[in-house]
C-alpha cells in the first residue's frame, strides 16, 4: 500500500494502482474518453490529465502509477484549462448535430463539454465528413462523429480477437476503419457488437435503436442472456414496453463482453410468431381457448390416463431454457402429482 493525496485528502491504495483507479475507488470522478478497464492503456485522449506536485507536465491519470507521497490535483485551474482545450479541439472536427444524435444525453463528449462549459471552438477550419456506413446488418458507422479514442480497435483486437478495426491514414486524415475500408461483412467481424458498447459517442450505433427513443426515455433492465451456458450479464434497453437493444452490464463474469447472440439475437422475443393463447387441437386443427378451458382439459386427460395406467405411463421434459424456479416446480409436478421420476431435459444434447 502507498499513501497519496488527492485534492488535499489522504488515501491509502495498493502500490500497483494508477492515479485513475485510486481516484475512482475513492469516489473522485476523473473524465476519460479512451480508457476502458481491461484494455491496453493508450493515454491517447488526454482527458484524464491531472496535476502532480513536482511533475513538470500534466500527467494522464489512466497511465500514471501511484507512488508513495504523491500529491494530485484532479480539477485544478491548469487541469481544467487543458481539458477545455482538448474538448475544443475535439469538437472542432466533430459533427455537432446533437439535436438528433442517438447518443444525445448519453454522450461522454457532450457531458464533458457541459461539465467544463465548452460551448464552441475557436479552432475553425476544415471538418472531415464521411458518409454513414449502413452496410452491416447490426449497426451504423458514422465516422463524422468518431473522436478516435481507439476503444473499438482495442476491444475487437484484445477481447474478441477479430482485430477488424485499426487506424487508417495519418494526422487530420486519420480514420478508424476495417482493412481496405471494406464493409464489415468482408472482414473477420463476428458481429459481437462490443465496439458499439464501448463507443463513448455516436459513431457506432445499433440500428435497432435508431429513431426509437432518446436515451433518457429508455429503461435498462439488467438480466442474464437466454442463449448459452456462459450466462453473460447484459442490459435490455426497453422503450414503451418493447426491447430496442442491448447494453453491456459489468456485473457478471463476462465483464461487459458479449457475442452476436447476446447483443443482437433478442428479436425473437417480440416475434409475431409468439404463442399468445392456449391451443387445443380438434379434428387436426389448433383452436384458441381460454386458460381455464385448456388447463381443465389437460388436467382431465392426465387424470384419466393416471387412473387407467398409473404414474409410470407419464414422462416429462423440463427445460434448460427455463428458470430454476420453473424447473423445480416442473419436477415437483411430475414426482408429486403424476408420481413418476420420468423427468429429464436436453442436458445430453
Amino acid at each position: 500500500m502507498v499513501s497519496i493525496k488527492i485534492n488535499g485528502n489522504l488515501y491509502n491504495v495498493p502500490a500497483d494502482y494508477t492515479i485513475l483507479k485510486a481516484a475512482e475507488e475513492n469516489g473522485i470522478d476523473i473524465p476519460t474518453l479512451c480508457y476502458e478497464e481491461g484494455l491496453t492503456i493508450t493515454g491517447a485522449c488526454r482527458m484524464c490529465v491531472v496535476e502532480v506536485k513536482g511533475a513538470r507536465k500534466l500527467l494522464a491519470a489512466c497511465a500514471t502509477p501511484v507512488t508513495d507521497g504523491m500529491e494530485v490535483q484532479t480539477e485544478s485551474e491548469r487541469v481544467v484549462s487543458a481539458r477545455r482545450d482538448i474538448l475544443r479541439l475535439l469538437i472542432a472536427n466533430h459533427d455537432l448535430r446533437c439535436l438528433t444524435c442517438e447518443r444525445n444525453g448519453d454522450c461522454r463528449l457532450q457531458d464533458y463539454c457541459y461539465r467544463y462549459q465548452v460551448e464552441d471552438t475557436p479552432y475553425k477550419g476544415a471538418k472531415k465528413e464521411y458518409p454513414i456506413d449502413t452496410d452491416n446488418h447490426f449497426f451504423i458507422r458514422d465516422y463524422s462523429k468518431c473522436i478516435k479514442c481507439g476503444k473499438c480497435v482495442l476491444i475487437c483486437a484484445e477481447v474478441n480477437g477479430a482485430h477488424v478495426y485499426d487506424f487508417m491514414e495519418r494526422g487530420f486524415d486519420t480514420k478508424v476503419t476495417s482493412a481496405f475500408d471494406d464493409n464489415l461483412q468482408e472482414t473477420t467481424c463476428t458481429a459481437c457488437g462490443m465496439c458499439v458498447n464501448v463507443c463513448p459517442v455516436g459513431a457506432l450505433v445499433e440500428k435497432s435503436v435508431l429513431w426509437q427513443g432518446r436515451p433518457w426515455e429508455v429503461k435498462k433492465v439488467t438480466t442474464t442472456c437466454g442463449y448459452c451456458g456462459v450466462g453473460c450479464q447484459l442490459k435490455l434497453k426497453v422503450k414503451d414496453d418493447r426491447i430496442i437493444g442491448v447494453a453491456a452490464a459489468k456485473s457478471g463474469s463476462n465483464l461487459g463482453h458479449l457475442c452476436a447472440k447476446g447483443q443482437f439475437g433478442w428479436e425473437y422475443v417480440q416475434s409475431n410468431d409468439r404463442l399468445t393463447d392456449p391451443l387445443i387441437k380438434r379434428n387436426g386443427v389448433f383452436e384458441k381457448v381460454s386458460w381455464d378451458e385448456a388447463l381443465t382439459y389437460v388436467a382431465n386427460r392426465l387424470k384419466a390416463i393416471w387412473q387407467e395406467h398409473g404414474g409410470q405411463a407419464f414422462a416429462g421434459l423440463t427445460s434448460a431454457k427455463c428458470t430454476n424456479e420453473e424447473n423445480y416446480l416442473f419436477q415437483k409436478f411430475m414426482r408429486t402429482i403424476l408420481k413418476t421420476n420420468n423427468v429429464d431435459h436436453c442436458a445430453r444434447l
Partner: peptide, 11 residues
C-alpha cells in the same frame, strides 16, 4: 443458458 440449473433443480 440454464442446463446447469435444470440439472441442479432435479430435472
Amino acid at each position: 443458458n440454464n442446463v446447469q440449473g435444470a440439472c441442479d433443480m432435479g430435472g
